[in-house]
Design a protein around this nucleic acid. Structure first.
Lengths: 116, 116
DNA sequence: TCAATACATCGACGAACATCGATGCCCGAA
DNA sequence: TTCGGGCATCGATGTTCGTCGATGTATTGA
């Protein structure tokens, strides 16, 4: 699938027109989040106690097969949204909220209350 | 394509685990942004002078065919990210930044500087 | 009434992707 | 060393979706 790590690539959407290259990069980042299974996986990992979650505890709550869960975890890892650490037989995942901040910034600065 | 308007659907990703339904809705919202052509269109409209842009001025800078541009504008409109107003022969589009704010909120609250 | 322009819709094609069974690899226990 | 469990990878399949030529629908000007 060839996935690049999410990195700051552009000004906020509402400020200036995106270049073709910046749009490609930003779209690829949003594509990682554009799947219900990946969103649930990320939220499960991010909200887990101890700050980390075992892959073995993610298959059942997702209701998908083990290969499918593993695939989505790889996508999240390649994007840098989570990090993988193998300990013994198990794989432990941690969320990296700073990657989300990059996307937050791309969505624009704070919107005045009057416009919301 | 059946696209629903973007609406607030869930707590920030990093706070609690998403339900299957909330994940479906949020993923659908991100899917709208997960395309380079739509990102460029939105940024072109949002950063246009007068706060609005004519569809006739969006085809050439995008480098895509007129049907393709029209298709993407429809997706953005269905999602509520832009609004369409037909005046004479022309269609004028305005960006609605408040829909972006919904997604910003879903990406979590402010991240402490130490974690960025 | 006719021609031209702006834009949406239709139909079709190809590429990207989510999904899962089967399989391979690695580690720990016996 | 062997066995079993956890997890990644492979290969195949069905679906979704971006793209564009052709066509339809308004609206304007002559």
């Amino acid at each position: 699938m060839e996935i690049k790590p999410i990195t700051a690539c552009c000004e906020p959407l509402t400020d200036t027109a995106l270049t073709a290259e910046a749009a490609d990069e930003l779209a690829a980042a949003f594509k990682v989040l554009a799947d219900p299974a990946r969103l649930r996986l990320f939220s499960l990992i991010a909200s887990a106690g101890e700050g980390e979650a075992c892959a073995c505890d993610l298959v059942e709550p997702l209701g998908k097969s083990q290969p499918t869960v593993s695939h989505h975890l790889s996508v999240l890892t390649d994007a840098g949204l989570v990090t993988r650490e193998k300990r013994g037989r198990w794989a432990w995942y941690r969320a990296d909220a700073s990657r989300l901040a990059v996307l937050r910034d791309a969505l624009g600065s704070v919107v005045p209350l009057g416009e919301r």
